[in-house]
């Protein structure tokens, strides 16, 4: 009996550090952030000013300094949330199918296609900025190919009509590698006999991929879509580095707005607003996750 108690205590003590860490780093910070969303605070004042739901009201409709900006940012974010997952799937699935059918150098090709993911960082986004400038590589290539009319004289990030689509392309460029790898894993898990059966039934390459492979990797597609939706909703680093929401506010997104409210307001008491926006984003992410779960359950 004494030995069992001792072992139980040992077990609890072993898990205690993880539980304490989770309680402090997880529960405490989440709870702290939630409470902060009902307060006005600049991060340093000795006390919080409680404002109830005012931060949420200010952000959503009441305060003209915040609400219109948030509405614009929400529309831009919506475009990103639709385009990025869609384009990521459209690029990464065919790429994975091609890579899966490669007879030689599959490992090398997989590494090459994975490069954008491992190199995605501040430096790469700066490099993108140079590429997209008026005298950058993309305009130069277009001009040298005789397609100068497609070049952007103000740069691809300087024209309000091309800035957001360009940011979407850069985001997709960064998200394709992981999606492709997930698809590749899914493709390699498909029973070969299923593919052989479809070929015996006379299905060609296109039909096999469209009617057999695609439905079989649908769970992977759900994961890819969900991951990219989440990133599109909350991610902002690329936008912060490459455009800072500009030109004007034509590429401002919700994640960037939350960051700006938290850290770029020169110590104005807007941490509560940033926190409230964070919780609004959390609620949106939760709804998306639930919808995704529902869709997955009905399809699988």
């Amino acid at each position: 009996m004494r030995r069992r108690t001792y072992e139980a205590v040992s077990g609890y003590l072993f898990v205690a550090p993880a539980v304490i860490l989770f309680a402090v780093m997880g529960l405490y910070t989440v709870g702290y952030g939630f409470l902060l969303s009902f307060a006005q605070w600049n991060g340093f004042a000795p006390h919080w000013d409680w404002v109830g739901l005012q931060n949420y009201k200010d952000l959503l409709w009441q305060n003209p300094a915040y609400a219109p900006r948030l509405h614009h940012a929400a529309i831009h974010t919506l475009y990103v949330m639709i385009a990025v997952p869609l384009l990521t799937v459209l690029v990464s699935f065919p790429l994975a199918v091609l890579l899966n059918s490669a007879k030689r150098m599959q490992g090398v090709l997989r590494s090459v296609y994975f490069v954008p993911y491992v190199t995605s960082g501040i430096a790469v986004f700066f490099a993108w900025q140079y590429i997209l400038q008026p005298d950058g590589a993309i305009n130069s290539v277009l001009s040298s190919l005789g397609m100068g009319s497609l070049a952007q004289p103000q740069g691809w990030l300087g024209n309000p009509d091309t800035a957001l689509p360009t940011m979407i392309v850069v985001t997709v460029w960064g998200s394709v590698p992981v999606a492709m790898l997930l698809y590749l894993t899914g493709l390699q898990g498909i029973d070969r006999s299923v593919l052989e059966a479809s070929q015996l039934d006379g299905a060609g390459w296109w039909r096999t991929n469209a009617s057999v492979v695609w439905p079989l990797v649908r769970p992977i597609t759900s994961i890819v879509v969900l991951l990219n939706l989440r990133d599109s909703l909350q991610g902002f680093q690329t936008f912060l580095v490459m455009t800072n929401g500009g030109p004007g506010d034509h590429t401002n997104v919700l994640g960037l707005e939350a960051y700006r409210l938290a850290f770029l307001k020169d110590l104005a008491p807007t941490l509560g607003l940033a926190s409230a926006l964070g919780w609004i984003l959390f609620a949106a992410a939760l709804v998306i996750a639930l919808i995704n779960l529902r869709v997955m359950r009905s399809k699988t």
């Binding site: 900025q129 400038q133 008026p134 005298d135 004289p153 103000q154 740069g155 990030l157 300087g158 455009t243 800072n244 500009g246 030109p247 004007g248």
Partner: peptide, 8 residues
């Protein structure tokens, strides 16, 4: 200057 809106 072309692209000045993208420069800090």
């Amino acid at each position: 200057m072309p692209g000045t809106q993208t420069l800090d």
